[in-house]
Simulated assay, not measured.
Amino acid sequence: MTLTQAIEALKAGRFVMVHDDKGRENEIDLVVAAEHITPAHVATMRQDAGGLLCLAIANEITARLGLVYMHDMIAGMGKVNPVYSRLTEGRAAYGDKPSFSIYVNHRNTYTGITDSDRALTISEMAKICKNVNVEEFAKNFHAPGHVPILIAAKNLLAERNGHTELCVYLMKLAGMTPAVAICEMMDSQTHKALSIEKASAYAKRSGIPLVEASELKEAHQRARVA
């Protein structure tokens, strides 16, 4: 039922919350479809979530745009300076390599960081993702910018179970352009990630569907078996 409600919310341009496994990051992200994002969405994510606002995109789209992982770009710079190679050694505490690629701004933004600027960058990137055009991407965006692009794993949940993959898969379930704005929910009292208990209370208070990673993984598994 929650999954159905989440899909309906995304299609209507409303927020969804996604909780990954307790054994992984154990964080909740506030999520909205990139194609529906507004400055008001960005303001809410900034004020009520407070983490890093990112744009997660399906692998088949980023591949056509020629985007690569930031990890690989930095590692490649080890040929210039060995320090870069050392910076990319190992994995994060939760076990994965990060899904970050480049940071971009739309060329019609000013500083790129305001609610309006980031909403413009994300919504215009959604258009690029819907009708992939490398020339339009190069012409209308510049880097570095203020919106980090996250590249979803090629095989999504069969390969990686981060918020990037969970949220892109949710967009695919909704039959929408697989580009989604996500932001971790922080707790200014504990100075840590917002607990699932507090997140559940926020979701109930705000009328936002809260989806567990297990629901998405079960749906993904059913689709693979079918």
Results as ranks from 00 to 15, higher is better:
Cys129Arg: 06
Asp29Ser: 09
Thr190Leu: 03
Arg160Phe: 08
Ala174Arg: 05
His142Val: 14
Ile74Pro: 00
Cys54Ala: 06
Ala56Glu: 08
Thr114Leu: 01
Gln5Ile: 07
His142Lys: 14
Glu184Phe: 08
Asn105Tyr: 01
Glu136Ala: 15
Ala75Phe: 10
Val18Leu: 01
Lys139Tyr: 10
Gly162Thr: 15
Thr111Leu: 01
Leu166Tyr: 07
Thr111Cys: 01
Gly145Met: 11
Thr164Val: 13
Ala58Cys: 08
Arg14Phe: 01
Ala93Ser: 12
Gly175Arg: 09
Leu55Cys: 11
Gly112Phe: 08
Ala34Ser: 10
Ala213Arg: 05
Gly95Phe: 04
Ala199Met: 03
Leu30Met: 11
Arg222Ser: 07
Leu166Gln: 09
Gly76Phe: 08
Met73Phe: 08
Ala58Asn: 12
Ala226Asn: 14
Ala223Val: 13
Ala143His: 15
Glu8Arg: 07
Ala33Gln: 05
Ala49Phe: 02
Ile102Ala: 02
Leu173Trp: 05
His41Cys: 02
Gly112Met: 02
Leu150Lys: 12
Glu212Ala: 15
Ala153Arg: 15
Asp96Cys: 03
Gly23Thr: 13
Ala34Ile: 11
Asp72Arg: 13
Ala179Ser: 12
Gly23Tyr: 07
Val83Trp: 06
Thr121Val: 04
Lys172Pro: 06
Pro148Lys: 13
Thr88Arg: 03
Tyr84Gly: 05
Arg91Glu: 07
Ala201Lys: 07
Ala179Ile: 11
Leu87Asn: 07
Ala49Ser: 05
Gly66Leu: 04
Ile196Ser: 05
Ser195Asn: 04
Ala138Trp: 06
Gly66Gln: 05
Glu27Thr: 11
Met70Gly: 14
Tyr69Arg: 14
Leu87Lys: 05
Asn59His: 15
Gly162Gln: 13
Tyr202Ala: 02
Lys127Ile: 03
Glu136Asn: 14
Asp117Asn: 02
Ile7Met: 06
Thr164Trp: 08
Ala193Cys: 02
Lys154Gln: 15
Thr2Tyr: 03
Gly78Gln: 10
Ala92Pro: 00
Glu197Thr: 14
Pro144Tyr: 11
Glu184Asn: 10
Ala158His: 14
Met1Pro: 09
Ala213Trp: 09
Ala152Ser: 15
Ala201Phe: 01
Tyr103Trp: 10
Ala75Pro: 04
Ile113Met: 04
Glu8Gln: 14
Tyr69Trp: 11
Ile28Met: 02
His41Arg: 00
Ile196Phe: 03
Leu194Arg: 11
Tyr202Met: 13
Ala181His: 03
Cys129Tyr: 09
Ala9Met: 04
Glu165Gln: 13
Ala56Leu: 00
Glu35Phe: 01
Asn133Glu: 09
Asp29Ile: 11
Met45Arg: 02
Gly207Ile: 12
Ser116Phe: 07
Gly78Trp: 09
Arg64Asn: 06
Glu184Ser: 04
Met73Arg: 14
Phe15His: 08
Lys79Leu: 13
Gly112Arg: 02
Leu52Asp: 04
Leu65Glu: 09
Ser99Ala: 15
Cys54Glu: 10
Cys54Thr: 10
Val147Tyr: 10
Asn108Cys: 04
Lys127Glu: 08
Thr109Val: 10
Gly51Phe: 02
Glu159Val: 14
Val147Gly: 04
Gly51Ser: 04
Asp115Met: 00
Ser85Trp: 03
Thr164Glu: 03
Arg14Val: 06
Arg118Gln: 08
Gln47Val: 14
Asn108Lys: 09
Ala174Glu: 06
Gln47Phe: 05
Leu150Pro: 12
